[in-house]
Design a protein around this nucleic acid. Sequence first.
DNA 1: GAACAGCGTGCATACGTTTGCACCTGACTG
DNA 2: CAGTCAGGTGCAAACGTATGCACGCTGTTC
Lengths: 341, 341
Amino acid sequence: MVTIKDIAKIAGVSPSTVSRVVSNHPRISHETSRKVKAIMEQEGYHPNIMAKSLVSKTTQTLGILLPRPAEELFQNDFFGELLRGIVTQATSAGYDTLITTVTKDTDELMAISRLVRGQRVDGILLLSSRTSDPVIGFLQENEFPFVLIGRSDDYQDVLSIDNNNVQAAQDATNHLISQGHTRIGFINGPTNLVVSQDRLAGYHKALCEANIVARPEWAIAVDMMQQSGFRAISGYMSMPDRPSALVVFDDAIAFGVLRGLTELGYSVPEDISLVSFNNIPLSGVASTPISSVDIGIYHLGYTASQFLLRSAQGKPLPEDQIIIPHRLIVRKSSINQISSE
Amino acid sequence: MVTIKDIAKIAGVSPSTVSRVVSNHPRISHETSRKVKAIMEQEGYHPNIMAKSLVSKTTQTLGILLPRPAEELFQNDFFGELLRGIVTQATSAGYDTLITTVTKDTDELMAISRLVRGQRVDGILLLSSRTSDPVIGFLQENEFPFVLIGRSDDYQDVLSIDNNNVQAAQDATNHLISQGHTRIGFINGPTNLVVSQDRLAGYHKALCEANIVARPEWAIAVDMMQQSGFRAISGYMSMPDRPSALVVFDDAIAFGVLRGLTELGYSVPEDISLVSFNNIPLSGVASTPISSVDIGIYHLGYTASQFLLRSAQGKPLPEDQIIIPHRLIVRKSSINQISSE
DNA sequence: GAACAGCGTGCATACGTTTGCACCTGACTG
DNA sequence: CAGTCAGGTGCAAACGTATGCACGCTGTTC
């Protein structure tokens, strides 16, 4: 492999000069620069990044700790889109993106520790938004740049990029209310996720502000598999007194719900209206197109990446929390004027 | 940051000894090893990976060149699942995974060149399966370890991990034939992808073997957006003489087709049967569950990663092409005994 | 009792860069 | 004409680790 010394020898200059040419040092003569650059091109020279990192103490790399394979994020489009946002921004800033994953919860700290202590990355992007995350504590102690996608109540002064999920759920619920519904249920995601808690809170807030009394038995939690949406809906429909509309945590679950309803002979939105979250591409081509809150997943990743880079470069971070705007996309599943009771 | 020298000083030994402890050198006394390990633990020492790489000429990292953001793979579940397979295998072997992407085609070579020449990764995983890919040529010239997910006809001696897409399409088509269909159409993906060509070939082969004459106007190509499936189907249905069954390139497109059919007042599988590919989780909960060929995406990524690691470690590669088995999952969209004509 | 084997450790060098400092040259100043 | 200055370049040290070689020590063998 051709090194800086080889180039220097061919060009008849010292390695330092070549190095300065590479970094566009101001005090290199135009002619030398031109000559060296030509030789680099001709020899196909690229600086060895390891050597560079060793002295510069910087890796030009961002780390991402993936949620465990078993976890939900991998199950649907969310992750791919998020990653696209992250990588696009990082790449445009000349950074690479490093991915690690773990199989057991207990390995998480080890994996992070390896990245941080081994100085393999300049900053870390955390995807999990569990209520309590030891990784956050570790990163804070070591004053290592990191950004959280999501939110954590248990730690202070953490830069996190998130949607206003309370507001988003409130918007979704209010939309149903504005369509004349008063009997509104909620199918939530895993309750240990902050986002689930936020959306549930938004749902309750909307009901409260509309002076609708929440019915506890109408708010349930399922895991992220669309099968569970399928199962959940039959529970609802067998209730003697059932809701006329549902807010659903996630499009994948909503698909299951929709399918269950069809199978049971109900139709959407006539018998029951639906609004869900994430607005994955397929939402629009479901048998009944599903109204969904677009939470700007790409934007989320892009922004997180952007702020992490700033932080990694030692620049001050503007705020403690960045909110990515959401937008309710109304489709057929919730367009319905039911008779007011 | 604590280095090997610090540990050495505290333990009262030389850095070499510490280094040997870390790598479990046989000629280190048990007691020294124990003592040094205790100190490493206590000081939170992790070897600097950059320095390590510099001397060992190895990075313990795999590179992935993402398809361009605009490209299809990002659009659906395929990519997330593939990545999960790749990263899981790599991580279990102690490797990290580095992701880069480019915005323009012309940047691809630059990006790859940076990784290879800069010795940033030990091997590269190529996701694109375009018929002609300059990146493959570059990697071959430089004798750099790489594995192709997909297939390329233009280069010899490339280790590629792929499905038998010809067979898969043949199976899908045969399934429709076995259901009594003789009027079978094909909605293909982008024609510059090898996989599209293979599936089209399999479709033709099945027809041919069943002595069914292929109708050129029944085989069309669309891009990967599900909207295009939506549009395509109206073209079919306005034909005076239309197929009774369709093989569709991808689940996302199939969703669009399904939706189009419903909108036009047709039902599946009664008016028209469908079989598609990829078997994404949502296929099973479509309004009519879609029959789909499961191509083992996770398995594809996992295996590719596995062979790339072998190659990166200088081990010989067993074969030129590894085939990941596929499996047709029959669902309602294709279960239909139509009257034989 | 000398020679030798084997174990455990340290010294020195190398990996490919960056960068502070010093040096040289020529031009310009007073 | 000596002195200053700025531009252009090279020297050498440093980053943190791995490893071939040499060295000292202990115990064994003839």
